[in-house]
Deep mutational scan, measured.
Amino acid sequence: HTVDVQGVTYHFDNPEEARKFAEEMAKRLGLQVHVKDGRYKVE
């Protein structure tokens, strides 16, 4: 499970961890979480 944050890619084994990380980063950076091709993108 992959999370892209402003061009940096993070990998997680656990989909729940990936989702939480994406939401946390989006909140911290004031950005949105998009799901695209099964990847989380924070932009």
Rank of each mutant, 00 (worst) to 15 (best):
H34P: 01
L31S: 05
E23Y: 15
E43I: 07
K20P: 03
P15D: 15
D13A: 11
E17C: 10
M25G: 03
R39W: 12
H34A: 08
N14I: 09
L31Q: 05
Y10V: 06
D37L: 03
F12T: 01
K27H: 12
Y40I: 06
K41V: 15
E43G: 14
E24K: 10
G30D: 05
H1W: 11
A22H: 00
V5C: 07
H1P: 12
E43F: 08
L31G: 09
E43A: 07
G7R: 05
E17R: 09
H11S: 11
E24A: 11
V33K: 01
M25Q: 12
N14G: 12
F12I: 03
A26V: 02
V35H: 09
D4Q: 08
V8G: 06
V3S: 01
V33D: 00
F21V: 03
R28A: 13
G30A: 04
E23W: 14
K20W: 11
E16V: 11
L31M: 14
L29H: 05
T9F: 12
K41F: 15
T9N: 08
E23S: 07
Q32W: 07
D13Y: 09
E24C: 09
V33R: 00
H34E: 09
V35F: 15
E24P: 00
T2C: 08
D13E: 13
D4R: 05
A18S: 05
D13G: 11
D13L: 10
F21N: 02
F21W: 08
V3N: 00
G38W: 03
R39F: 13
A22I: 01
L29N: 03
V42S: 02
Q6Y: 09
K27P: 01
K20C: 09
H34N: 10
R28Q: 12
N14T: 14
T2Y: 15
R19N: 05
D37I: 02
A22C: 05
M25K: 06
G7M: 06
E17A: 13
V42I: 07
K27F: 12
V42T: 02
V42W: 02
K36S: 14
Q6V: 14
H11G: 08
A26D: 00
V3I: 02
K41G: 05
A26T: 02
K36T: 14
K41D: 08
A26M: 02
Y10Q: 04
A22T: 01
V3H: 00
F21H: 04
R19P: 02
E23I: 12
G7H: 07
K27I: 10
T9G: 07
N14L: 12
H11P: 07
T2Q: 14
F12C: 05
V42D: 02
D37G: 06
H34G: 05
G38P: 02
V3W: 00
Q32P: 06
R28H: 09
H34S: 14
H11L: 13
Y40L: 07
V33G: 01
Q6L: 15
N14Q: 12
E16R: 09
G38H: 05
A22R: 00
F21A: 04
D4M: 07
P15L: 09
A22N: 00
T2V: 15
P15F: 06
K36P: 01
R19Y: 09
V3K: 00
P15R: 13
T9L: 14
A18M: 03
A26G: 07
G38T: 04
E24N: 09
E43V: 08
Y40Q: 02
Q32R: 10
K27L: 12
Q6A: 08
D13N: 12
H34I: 15
F12E: 00
K41H: 15
N14V: 10
H34Q: 11
T2I: 15
V33P: 02
T2N: 10
A18V: 03
V5M: 06
A26W: 01
D4E: 14
N14Y: 11
H11E: 13
V5D: 01
G30I: 02
R19G: 07
E24Y: 12
E23Q: 09
Q32V: 15
L29W: 06
E17G: 09
Q32E: 10
P15K: 13
R28C: 08
H1K: 10
E24L: 12
L29S: 03
K41N: 13
F12S: 01
E17N: 11
E17M: 11
T9S: 13
V33Q: 01
H11K: 11
R39D: 15
E43K: 04
H34V: 15
R39C: 10
R28L: 14
R39N: 15
G30S: 05
K27M: 12
A18P: 02
D13K: 11
F21Q: 02
F12D: 00
K27Q: 12
T9K: 07
T2K: 13
E16Y: 10
E17K: 11
Y40R: 01
Q6T: 11
Q32L: 08
L29V: 03
V35W: 14
N14D: 14
V3A: 04
E23N: 10
K36Q: 14
R19D: 04
V5F: 05
L29G: 03
E16G: 10
E16A: 10
L31I: 04
E16W: 10
Q6F: 11
E23A: 07
Q32F: 10
G7E: 06
V8R: 12
V5E: 00
L29F: 07
D13P: 11
L31N: 02
Y40S: 01
F21T: 03
Y40D: 04
A18N: 00
A26I: 01
A22V: 02
V33F: 06
D4S: 07
Q6E: 11
V35P: 02
K27V: 09
G38D: 08
G38S: 04
V35Q: 07
D13R: 09
F21C: 04
R39P: 03
K20M: 14
H11D: 11
K27R: 13
G38L: 03
E23K: 06
Y10L: 05
Q6C: 07
R28S: 10
A18G: 05
D37F: 04
V42Q: 01
F12H: 03
G38R: 04
P15I: 09
E23L: 09
Y40K: 01
Y10K: 04
E17W: 07
R19Q: 09
H1D: 08
Y40C: 04
T9D: 06
V42P: 01
M25L: 07
M25S: 09
D4H: 06
R19C: 07
H11V: 14
L29P: 02
D4I: 07
Y40F: 10
E24G: 09
H1L: 08
H1G: 13
M25R: 05
R28V: 11
E43Q: 08
D37V: 02
K20V: 13
H34C: 07
E24M: 13
D37K: 04
E16N: 11
T9Y: 10
Y10A: 04
V42N: 02
Y40W: 13
G30K: 05
L29C: 05
E17D: 13
Q6G: 09
K20N: 13
T2E: 14
L29I: 03
G7V: 02
V33H: 02
V33W: 09
A18Y: 00
N14P: 02
F21D: 00
V35I: 13
K36V: 15
F12Y: 06
L29T: 04
Y40A: 01
T2F: 15
G7T: 05
R39Y: 15
R19T: 05
E23M: 11
Q6K: 10
V33C: 06
G38Y: 03
V35C: 06
V35G: 09
A18Q: 05
G30V: 03
H34Y: 14
V8L: 12
K20F: 12
V42C: 03
T2A: 14
V42R: 00
K36W: 08
K41Q: 15
A22E: 00
H1V: 10
D13S: 12
H34F: 14
V5W: 03
K36E: 15
H11Y: 14
M25F: 06
F12V: 02
F21R: 02
V8I: 12
H11C: 07
T9A: 10
T9H: 10
K41Y: 15
K27W: 09
F12N: 00
Q6W: 08
G30N: 08
E16S: 11
R39A: 15
V42K: 01
V8M: 12
E43D: 13
Y10H: 08
Y40P: 04
E43H: 07
Y40H: 03
V3P: 00
Y10N: 04
V42L: 12
V35S: 05
V8T: 13
R19I: 07
R19S: 07
R39H: 15
R28M: 13
H1R: 10
M25D: 02
V8N: 11
E23T: 09
T2P: 15
G7F: 05
T2R: 09
K36D: 14
E24I: 10
P15H: 14
V5Y: 04
K20R: 12
V8P: 01
R19V: 07
N14A: 13
V3E: 00
Q6I: 14
T2W: 15
N14S: 13
G30Y: 04
V35L: 14
R39Q: 15
E24Q: 10
Q6R: 08
H11A: 10
E23D: 09
V42G: 02
Y40N: 02
K20Y: 12
D37S: 04
D4N: 06
G7A: 06
K20D: 12
E23V: 11
F21P: 00
